[in-house]
Design a protein around this nucleic acid. Structure first.
Length: 542
RNA sequence: GGCCGUGUACCCAAGUGGUCUAAGGGGACGGAUUGCAAAUCCGUUAUUCGUCGGUUCGAAUCCGACCGCGGCCUCCA
């Protein structure tokens, strides 16, 4: 059964057919870096990671590419070569749409306030540095972006996002918006030149949605419906300058913005661009949100890509607009063959929000003692098009599950028996993943198999390793992930208690042994007695 | 208000017309093991799928209404 994916464009399951033989191009809308990324952000990025890992997996059979004799038919070759790009949005955007009249607070300014507070209260790590390697200056937007970008990449690597691991040796996999301004301007100028964009009275450049009949095809919106549905949230000022309410910003002239560029200077060495600038004067300012992704996808992956992913909130307006710009500027009949959108995450059954106290960044969970793989499993174990429910109990479940698989792998690797590959289990796992990434079913297959295989063989070790190229959960990780068990006992103290308990047990002094175990339990430490002596670990809680 | 999605046991979560008296994991309970525990192993744990109605020989699965939850409707993954 070849891979079938749900395509937001068209709203149905469709067989995956690559543009080129065995190769896949994949663009994921990445994080904005004016705060630490939270688990909801990572759920979305992990959906992309899971898809990418599945495509590359030795269990995923490639099908023939478009416009070939074997289009869509299994080729007997396994594992695509995936070029996956995830951008870093480090341009300071406004907090609300009122910003069009200059009233909104820039998110970078907010970050400045937060970082200054963190610095004062000692929450900022020692030796935090900015964009130039010098100590972080919380008032410099480039420093803020650099600081949070590093934090993001650090978290992403711990969660085993392959694109972040790729970017270590190929930084073009994670392009930065601030380093792609020229590409954005070139796209904007092309759109102006082709009358897909216009300069309004306020000097801002807007995309002309009426010049693109397919506008709305991705989200199911129509320009009329958008106009009808628009409440007070759309400011009058913003609307007045536009030809149509649906038109969206490409370039905003603003000499006061924290991050701003002069189009003439940026495009000075591009004769064609300069010629268009003579006719359409774009003044110093900053780019619209959507154009970033159009430019970065084009620069690294070309005008036509296989896959594009993001959170469900990106469908409209972001992806709708990105698609329109890219298609008009590049003269293509499509930007991405498949648009993949993950649903939102809930926490303990509720919408995640700071006021409810259920808002978690990845690093907060690591600091609380949950391992990155535990968090990874908890975030990927639900089908990507369901609203998954992130819970403390779920983290505990995930942790136990990973332990069991690791134990299985260990005993399989130590087995003297070569064994035979269990093709039936491999096929069931692959069928589940091919069915629109049904990870929950695939994990069910994995669990039934490991439960029923009492004497795993070397072939079983290879098989679970094949599964793990997709799951990325079995390789051990460095623990503890940091030293921030602030207020808790240090390892030496716990070791001492455990040693005293071992002595008491050897002397058959059971009351003392049990008292020490209770003492450890009160410190959230669990002791396990094994044939080779006791081991312990901290219990993590939210 | 408009558009879209969703509701399965104590918790997480598959299943989208018959093989479902509903996979898998956790928890709980019983047993083996243990000084007692933990870990491990074995067993038990939804005649029922938000509510009500309809279609059908047959529905968790299709249709309708209602209730709950979530996303979007100009920069929140």
């Amino acid at each position: 059964m070849p891979l079938v994916l749900h395509n937001t464009l068209g709203g149905s399951l469709m067989p995956f057919i690559p543009l080129h033989d065995r190769k896949v191009t994949f663009y994921t809308c990445g994080p904005t870096v004016y705060d630490y990324a939270h688990i909801g952000n990572f759920r979305s990025f992990l959906v992309a990671d899971l898809l990418r890992r599945w495509l590359e997996s030795p269990l995923c059979e490639c099908v023939g590419p478009r416009d070939s004799a074997n289009q869509g038919t299994p080729t007997g070759v396994f594992g695509y070569h995936v070029t996956h790009v995830m951008n870093i949005t480090d341009v300071g955007h406004m907090t609300d749409d009122a910003s069009a009249d200059g009233a909104g607070l820039d998110k970078m300014e907010e970050a400045t306030k937060r970082l200054l507070e963190d610095k004062k209260s000692g929450r900022l790590p020692e030796g935090a540095t900015g964009a130039t390697g010098k100590p972080l200056d919380p008032t410099d937007p480039y420093d803020i972006a650099a600081y949070y970008t590093r934090a993001f990449i650090d978290d992403a690597k711990r969660l085993r996002l392959k694109v972040a691991l790729d970017a270590e040796h190929d930084p073009t996999c994670m392009p930065h918006a601030t380093q792609s301004i020229k590409g954005m301007l070139q796209l904007i100028l092309q759109l102006l030149n082709q009358n897909h964009a216009y300069l309004a009275e306020d000097g801002a450049c807007y995309f002309d949605t009426q010049s693109f009949p397919d506008y709305g095809a991705l989200s199911g919106n129509t320009v009329e419906a958008l106009r009808a549905g628009a409440g007070e949230r759309v400011s009058d000022f913003n609307q007045r300058a536009k030809r149509s309410p649906a038109d969206f910003l490409l370039w905003k002239p603003d000499r006061t913005h924290l991050m701003r560029w002069d189009p003439r200077r940026v495009c000075a060495d591009d004769q064609k661009a300069v010629a268009i600038l003579d006719r359409f004067p774009l003044h110093e300012g900053y780019p619209g949100w959507h154009i970033e992704c159009s430019a970065m996808a084009l620069a690294r992956l070309g005008p036509r890509i296989d896959l594009h992913s993001g959170g469900e909130d990106n469908i409209f307006p972001h992806h709708e607009c990105e698609l329109a710009q890219s298609r008009c500027a590049n003269h293509t009949d499509q930007l991405a063959s498949f648009w993949i959108h993950g649903r939102f995450l809930r926490v303990e059954g509720q919408k995640m929000s700071k006021s409810k106290g259920n808002f978690f960044t990845a690093r907060q969970l690591f600091a609380k003692g949950f391992s990155p793989t535990t968090v990874r499993l908890e975030l990927i174990k639900t089908h990507y098009r369901s609203n998954s429910n992130f819970t403390e109990q779920g983290l505990i479940d995930a942790s136990k599950q990973i332990d069991r698989w690791r134990t299985f792998l260990q005993s399989a690797e130590q087995s003297p028996t070569p064994g035979v590959r269990n093709d039936s289990v491999a096929t069931k796992f692959a069928d589940a993943m091919n069915n629109d990434l049904n990870i929950a079913e695939a994990l069910g297959v994995l669990n039934s198999w490991t439960r029923d295989t009492t004497a795993p063989t070397q072939a079983d070790a290879q098989l679970i390793r094949d599964f793990d190229t997709v799951l990325a959960l079995l390789e051990p990780e460095d623990l503890p992930t940091d030293t921030s068990h602030a207020g808790g006992p240090d390892d030496a103290y716990i070791d001492d208690l455990v040693r005293r308990r071992t002595t008491a047990r050897a002397e058959k002094n059971w009351p003392e042994a049990d008292r020490l175990r209770d003492e450890l339990a009160a410190l959230e430490v669990e002791v396990t007695d094994t044939p080779t002596g006791p081991t312990w670990r901290r219990r993590a809680t939210l």
